[in-house]
Amino acid sequence: MTTTQAPPTEAAKARRVPGQPDMWVLVLVESLIFTSYFGVYLFYRAQHEAAFLQEQAHLDLWLGIVDTIVLLTSSWSVARCVQNARAGRYPAAVRDACVTAALGLLFLALKIAEWAGHITAGHTLTSGEFFTHYFFLTVIHAVHLLIGLVVVGIVVRQLADPRRRDQQVVETCATYWHTVDFLWVLIFALLYVAR
């Protein structure tokens, strides 16, 4: 587990799990569950390529790219929040966490606008197989994002109050947020780009 050259304290500092190791159970289990959803989508997509492509043409790739960049930036921000909190720069860490939450809300607003656009154009959960998967994956991801906003709220509350500050909780929460981010990265590739 540790390198033989470095003294034990150094090595322990160099190699440790960020946050509660327990959170990684959620990360790994959730990625497996999502992989199974993706697998089901790809399985049916490969069988009905023409029908999927025809419906997929109604998606705006640019919007997907903006969504992705917004979430990637929020992830970057929460990663900086962890580093600032670790260095004791709490006001900066609180600011980073607030930026993360704001970008999360922006992502959600963009998604709601996108859903509204599709629904008014007649593309709903039941209008076709592609849109069924589209709405399912984006909504279930949005549920995770909503939980993520609660989680970032916990970070802000922890960092704002000197008596509550707990680096481990901050790192655990950040790990959750990054999971929401990388799940979207996969959803984006599968829904907007896959042919």
Binding site: M23, V25, L26, I33, L125, I140, H144
Partner: peptide, 25 residues
């Protein structure tokens, strides 16, 4: 209980949401 089981509860809870479309399809 170990904390990881707390997180596993969240995974289970989220899969319960996924059954909701059974009312439609």
């Amino acid at each position: 209980f170990p904390k990881w089981f707390g997180y596993l509860n969240l995974c289970n809870a989220v899969t319960e949401v996924v059954v909701a479309p059974a009312w439609i399809f």
